[in-house]
């Protein structure tokens, strides 16, 4: 929290720390929500740029998480609009990992990745923010657009769709 306060006040070291901790999560969010890895990296950098240029406008440091992910979602929605193409997935192995690790990781997450692929980018993004980033419904709703109730309903529908897709894949095995 102090780091956010300092970054808002113009402390570039504090800002750099925030960006460093946010970057891998952003890449994961974008890559997990649909865009190819290279696009995910672009989107992450773009989101960080927007954070840098507007952090001084963040009024309440406590609202940072919601504010931050709102920016990420703007970027993501912009991407969906620009590309207007169904999302595809790439294998998600660490660049430094050996081939066995790569295969292992790839196998390990095939089911969830395939299940995610069956959902819309919006559903994936919603599940990610709620279950991975653990944002509240209020934070996900943000200042624009959706009420808490709407987000809650959308989330539960998305979750049901994921569970169904996941279950169907399990039966196929």
């Amino acid at each position: 929290m102090q780091a956010i306060e300092r970054a808002r006040a113009g402390d570039s070291e504090a800002l750099a720390d925030i960006l460093r901790s946010a970057h891998p999560r952003l890449v994961a969010y974008f890559a997990g929500s649909g865009p190819q890895r290279a696009d995910a990296e672009d989107l992450a950098a773009h989101t960080l740029e927007a954070v840098v240029t507007s952090i001084h406008k963040l009024k309440n440091p406590l609202a940072f998480e919601g504010w931050f992910w709102q920016i990420a979602r703007y970027s993501f929605r912009g991407w969906i609009r620009r590309t207007r193409r169904p999302a595809r997935f790439e294998p998600s192995y660490a660049p430094g990992a050996g081939p066995e690790d790569a295969i292992h990781l790839s196998d390990e997450h095939t089911q969830i990745r395939t299940a995610l692929e069956m959902l819309s980018p919006k559903d994936r993004s919603l599940l990610w923010l709620r279950d991975v980033e653990e944002l509240s419904y209020e934070e996900i709703g943000g200042r624009v657009g959706s009420t808490v109730g709407t987000v809650r309903v959308a989330y539960h529908r998305a979750r049901k769709r994921l569970e169904e897709a996941y279950g169907a894949l399990e039966q196929d095995d």
Partner: peptide, 8 residues
């Protein structure tokens, strides 16, 4: 899966 992506 998210953790593996973050770690990558």
């Amino acid at each position: 899966y998210a953790a593996s992506l973050t770690d990558s």
